[in-house]
Amino acid sequence: MTIRYTEDHEYVRQDGTTGTVGISDYAQSQLGDIVFVELPNVGASFSKGDEIAVVESVKAASEIYAPVSGTISAVNDALSGSPDLVNSDPMGEGWLIKMSIDDAGELDGLMDEAAYTDHIA
């Protein structure tokens, strides 16, 4: 499994052809208390860079973009009752969506952990 990050602070954790997408710990800390998460429908297809979700803090609505192209295979239903999971465990239970990745090659254009750490430094 590898984790890649976008410049806009989404992460995608690759497991075979499936990618789990969420926002980084840095992003959740910057946004503050998450109070609402809007997720796409399972089966919807997105190109890299398309808006796939919206994460709302008390003050702001932030759009989440597809880090890679693919089709939504699952969404995190737990977030409808507990959107704060994005704050408490962004890389774990606070994941947003899973998608089947169209082209694993797109991952190569994203940052690895070390590059992302530099990016937010």
Binding site: S57, K59, A60, S62, Y65
Partner: peptide
């Protein structure tokens, strides 16, 4: 990810 805010900004 892009933020829109009412007052103050993220």
């Amino acid at each position: 990810m892009h933020g829109k805010t009412v007052a103050g900004s993220v």
